[in-house]
């Protein structure tokens, strides 16, 4: 398949178009919110949140008996949020450090999810098949309806981010000053993390529990190399996320055995690599070139 066919397919192949669009939305939303997570040194929070969503997915299925994406999503969001609060509580109230609280919530919630998953396997109607796609994601199974939901909820999260932009910015960079101004710092903190959880839950279907954290970290870490301003970083991160989503989907459609989720993650990782090497101000190669120019300049002057 050559490039032209690929683009033709992107516009006219229903499945590919849906999947690419879904991945783009997911990349953009998790990219934008991931920027805040990375700046607040909560990069690994995404990993814990996505694992903590698993019991919620299964629980919602057990209760509702359907695989309706809204029900599963609500369940996922509920336990993801619960896990987040548990982490925050452990970190604030005990001497246990952040990384341990993350590992703890991640593995225990996932374990509970596995226990619940074995219950669904005993259900008579074998309806549960497909729940495990939340583990590794199955972008190819995205339906138009799923993409609409992703766009609606992701758009809502981004809208809230835009409305509370000033507040979130302040809380992220200078929480003491924000407290001094009388802002409800705790509540904003929780809200921002909840928005991150929304982004992660949206992506679970496509990328899966294990790799979703990369969609939070990678676009943001790449964007950070190109700019020092929050606004441009968030936009760029969303853009990188969307590009990773579309490019990953396209590449994975080229050959059999290229699962969409991992391919999207690899594209995003590649963007990070390029950014770290070649970003003008911070990149390793430009920095080395500058040092060399300085050294030779000093030599010729001396």
């Amino acid at each position: 398949m050559n490039l032209q066919d690929l683009f033709t397919a992107l516009f006219f192949d229903y499945t590919l178009r849906t999947v690419a669009l879904g991945s783009a939305v997911l990349g953009a939303v998790s990219g934008a919110l991931g920027a805040f997570a990375v700046l607040r040194r909560q990069s690994l929070m995404g990993d814990a949140i996505s694992h903590a969503a698993l019991p919620g997915v299964v629980l919602a299925f057990l209760i509702s008996g359907s695989k309706d994406i809204l029900a599963l999503g609500a369940g996922a969001l509920f336990t993801a949020w619960l896990g987040t609060m548990a982490m925050v509580y452990i970190r604030r109230r005990t001497r246990i450090k952040e990384d341990t609280s993350l590992g703890l919530v991640l593995s225990v919630f996932f374990g509970v999810g596995m226990v619940l998953l074995t219950f669904t396997q005993r259900l008579p109607n074998a309806h549960q098949a497909g729940l495990d796609r939340f583990l590794f994601g199955q972008a190819a199974a995205l339906l138009e309806r799923d993409v609409v939901y992703m766009a609606v909820f992701g758009g809502g999260a981004l809208l809230l981010l835009a409305l509370l932009w000033k507040e979130f910015k302040l809380v992220s960079f200078d929480p003491e000053f924000a407290t001094g101004l009388g802002l409800p710092v705790r509540a904003l903190d929780v809200l921002l993390t909840t928005l991150l959880a929304v982004a992660i839950v949206l992506g679970l279907q496509a990328v899966g529990v294990v790799l979703m954290s990369a969609m939070v970290v990678a676009p943001a870490a790449a964007a950070r190399q190109w700019t020092d301003r929050l606004g441009s970083m968030v936009l760029l991160s969303a853009l990188f996320g969307a590009i990773s989503g579309v490019a990953g989907t396209l590449v994975s459609s080229l050959a059999a055995g290229l699962s969409t989720g991992p391919t999207i993650v690899l594209v995003a990782s590649f963007i990070v690599l390029l950014s770290i090497l070649f970003a003008p101000a911070r990149g390793l190669v430009p920095a080395a070139l500058r040092r060399r120019a300085q050294a030779s300049g000093a030599l010729s002057q001396g």
């Binding site: 690994l44 995404g46 790799l211 990678a218 870490a221 950070r224 290229l258 991992p262 993650v265 690899l266």
Partner: peptide
Amino acid sequence: TQLVKNDAAVGLIFPALFSVAIILISRYAG
């Protein structure tokens, strides 16, 4: 490199290596 913080470094490396592993499995070890 001081271009990313410690937590982001962990969050970048392992999904990339894990993705390579999954693709290798699904492509060549099916």
